[in-house]
Nucleic acid binder design. Structure first.
Length: 113
DNA sequence: TTTGTGACCAAAG
DNA sequence: TCTTTGGCCACAA
């Protein structure tokens, strides 16, 4: 069959990765924002769950929850890796939270508009 | 097929 | 203020 395997995962996951990769450096976004961009704002959980298989191509460390809290950092390996990456992006992280989150906030539905 | 869970969000007590 | 509950979608067993 002509190897139609473009992606082992559904389009939904693929979109999540696509947007995640589009996140500019020094910027962060929220699961809900990505979900909203994909049109499934109600299922923001899926965005996070999609990150469960987050490829290395996807900077999941730039994706945080609505509060700018690094909820998913515990899923990183090691968890401190996420904060390290964020700091490297010139993003300050204090108490597992992104400093000036709203300033660093990057809304795909707006930037990619 | 059914059930359970998950890195969320928002509302209500 | 904090905790609990409801919802929504997709995937794994």
């Amino acid at each position: 069959m002509a190897s139609t395997k473009k992606a082992d995962k559904p389009n939904f996951f693929n979109d999540v990765y696509e947007v995640a990769r589009l996140i500019p450096k020094g910027r962060v976004t929220s699961y809900g924002a990505i979900a909203n961009y994909l049109g499934t704002k109600m299922s923001s959980r899926m965005v996070g769950w999609a990150m469960n298989g987050c490829p290395k191509d996807v900077p999941a460390h730039r994706v945080v929850n609505r509060n700018g809290l690094l909820t998913g950092k515990h899923h990183f390996n090691p968890p401190s890796r996420m904060q390290q990456l964020l700091e490297k992006e010139k993003i300050k992280v204090v108490d597992d939270k992104v400093v000036d989150f709203k300033e660093k906030y990057w809304d795909p539905s707006v930037e990619l508009m």
